[in-house]
């Protein structure tokens, strides 16, 4: 039972990380209609930039994440402007190929700057908390709390603030939104920047638990795609439910069956769900 509680908390913490990563990706899909395959490499860069500010520059942990998030926001905007914007009228295969090019580029840059070796980010938050007999590391509590706070802020931003509402408007009807004076190009940049910002927060939070490497984004990339496909591309509730469901399934199968199954469970679930419902669980009626 103690093991179960422990793993449940680990699963929820992991779910928080997936959620921050998946929300950005699904937003980008909703607005740009692009599955941004470079998302995992943005996560990786976010982790390294956080590491750089924390270890090399020496600013406090929270500030390091904040600065990294802002830098990645700018990078996301640039990615939209330089790569996806010129391709807005191309067949959908071309975006994906360009995103793959960007992904390789980011990985090579990270490797050139920080090397291919694994790096460890020192845990700035130490200690652990006892809940129901299980020992939960403080870092995981921080992840869960931050994820909830960030998600609430994001929901407020999209539902209540004027800039956030433009995102939803574009998602619903690009032409209609443009007619009422919303600039789709601006919103696209904002969305990609926002997704990079969110994924950097996720990376900064989880890095003290995991190791850093230029390819650390690859498996996250695939899992997050599995999540948003599962939830239905472009659906926010789908992404949230999918994140926590898959993360808990992953930690549980890793604990009780084997780590290899744990790693594959996201895809097994994905195959099973798409075999039954090819457009995901929470599919919106997506305009094409």
């Amino acid at each position: 039972m103690t093991l179960f509680t422990q793993q449940l908390f680990n699963g929820v913490a992991l779910g928080g990380v997936y959620c921050l990563a998946a929300i950005g990706l699904t937003l980008v899909f909703g607005v740009l209609r692009i599955p941004n395959l470079a998302h995992g490499s943005l996560y990786m860069l976010g982790a390294y930039v956080t590491y750089f500010f924390l270890t090399t520059v020496g600013v406090p942990y929270v500030a390091a994440i904040g600065i990294a998030a802002l830098i990645l926001f700018v990078l996301g905007v640039l990615l939209e402007r330089l790569v996806f914007h010129p391709l807005r009228n191309s067949p959908h295969t071309h975006h994906m190929i360009a995103a793959i090019g960007a992904m390789f580029f980011f990985q090579a840059v990270a490797q050139a700057i920080w090397g291919a070796d694994f790096r460890r980010m020192e845990t700035p938050i130490s200690g652990s908390v006892h809940i129901l007999g299980a020992e939960i590391s403080a870092q995981r509590i921080v992840i869960i709390v931050t994820a909830v706070v960030v998600l609430s802020l994001l929901t407020w931003f999209i539902k209540r603030s004027i800039h956030g509402q433009t995102i939803e408007a574009i998602e619903q009807d690009r032409t209609g939104a443009a007619l009422v004076g919303i600039n789709p190009a601006m919103v696209s940049m904002l969305t990609l920047g926002l997704s990079a910002l969110l994924v950097t927060i996720a990376a900064g939070l989880v890095s003290p638990i995991n190791l850093l490497s230029p390819t650390m984004g690859d498996s996250l990339n695939l899992k997050v795609f599995a999540i948003i496909i599962l939830g239905g591309l472009g659906s926010l509730p789908g992404a949230i439910v999918g994140s926590f469901a898959l993360a808990i399934a992953e930690t549980m199968t890793s604990t009780y069956i084997s780590s290899a199954v744990g790693e594959a469970v996201a895809f097994i679930v994905l195959v099973a769900v798409l075999a039954i419902k090819p457009t995901g669980l929470f599919a919106k009626a997506v305009q094409r």
Binding site: L82, I97, A98, G101, F105, F106, V109, Q111, A112
Partner: peptide, 12 residues
């Protein structure tokens, strides 16, 4: 390892 610094932008 660094070839994609050149090849990545070429793909794009």
């Amino acid at each position: 390892a660094y070839r994609f610094i050149v090849l990545g932008p070429i793909i794009i």
